[in-house]
Simulated assay, not measured.
Amino acid sequence: MCNTRTVFRMNAHSTAVATIDIELDLDIATDIDVTTESGDEDVDSEVDQRDEVWEKLRRLQADHVWIREELMHLQRRMVTQCLARQRRAYQIMKQMQQLLCRLQVKYGRTWGQ
Rank of each mutant, 00 (worst) to 15 (best):
1 M>C: 00
1 M>Q: 00
2 C>L: 11
3 N>Q: 01
3 N>A: 00
8 F>D: 04
8 F>W: 00
8 F>Y: 01
9 R>I: 08
10 M>T: 02
10 M>P: 00
13 H>R: 10
13 H>L: 06
14 S>M: 05
14 S>G: 00
14 S>C: 01
15 T>Q: 03
16 A>C: 02
17 V>I: 15
17 V>M: 09
18 A>Q: 05
18 A>E: 08
18 A>H: 05
18 A>G: 06
19 T>K: 06
20 I>Y: 06
20 I>T: 12
21 D>M: 06
21 D>K: 06
22 I>W: 05
22 I>F: 14
23 E>L: 08
23 E>W: 02
23 E>H: 07
24 L>H: 09
24 L>W: 05
25 D>V: 03
25 D>C: 14
26 L>E: 07
26 L>S: 05
26 L>H: 08
26 L>Y: 03
26 L>A: 08
27 D>T: 07
27 D>N: 12
28 I>P: 01
28 I>A: 13
28 I>D: 13
28 I>N: 08
30 T>R: 14
30 T>P: 00
31 D>A: 09
31 D>W: 04
31 D>Q: 11
32 I>W: 05
32 I>M: 11
32 I>H: 09
32 I>N: 04
33 D>L: 11
34 V>A: 10
34 V>K: 10
34 V>Y: 07
36 T>H: 06
38 S>N: 13
40 D>L: 13
41 E>A: 15
41 E>D: 15
42 D>N: 14
42 D>Q: 15
42 D>E: 15
45 S>G: 13
45 S>P: 01
46 E>R: 03
46 E>M: 15
47 V>T: 13
47 V>W: 02
48 D>F: 13
49 Q>W: 10
50 R>I: 10
51 D>F: 02
51 D>Y: 03
52 E>C: 05
52 E>L: 10
54 W>P: 00
55 E>N: 03
55 E>S: 12
55 E>M: 05
56 K>E: 15
57 L>S: 10
60 L>K: 09
60 L>E: 13
60 L>D: 14
61 Q>I: 05
62 A>W: 03
63 D>F: 04
63 D>I: 05
64 H>M: 09
64 H>Y: 15
64 H>G: 07
65 V>W: 07
65 V>R: 10
67 I>Y: 09
68 R>Y: 04
68 R>D: 11
68 R>F: 04
68 R>Q: 15
69 E>Y: 05
70 E>P: 00
71 L>E: 10
72 M>Q: 11
72 M>P: 01
73 H>S: 14
74 L>R: 14
74 L>H: 08
75 Q>F: 02
76 R>I: 08
78 M>T: 06
79 V>D: 02
79 V>N: 03
80 T>C: 03
81 Q>W: 03
83 L>M: 08
83 L>I: 08
85 R>Y: 11
86 Q>M: 11
87 R>C: 07
88 R>Y: 02
88 R>H: 08
89 A>C: 04
90 Y>M: 10
91 Q>F: 03
91 Q>T: 11
92 I>N: 08
92 I>Q: 12
92 I>V: 10
95 Q>C: 04
96 M>S: 07
96 M>Y: 02
97 Q>N: 09
97 Q>R: 09
99 L>K: 07
100 L>H: 09
100 L>M: 04
101 C>E: 14
101 C>Q: 14
102 R>Q: 13
104 Q>P: 01
106 K>E: 10
107 Y>C: 00
108 G>F: 00
109 R>K: 01
109 R>M: 02
109 R>N: 00
112 G>C: 01
112 G>S: 05
113 Q>P: 01
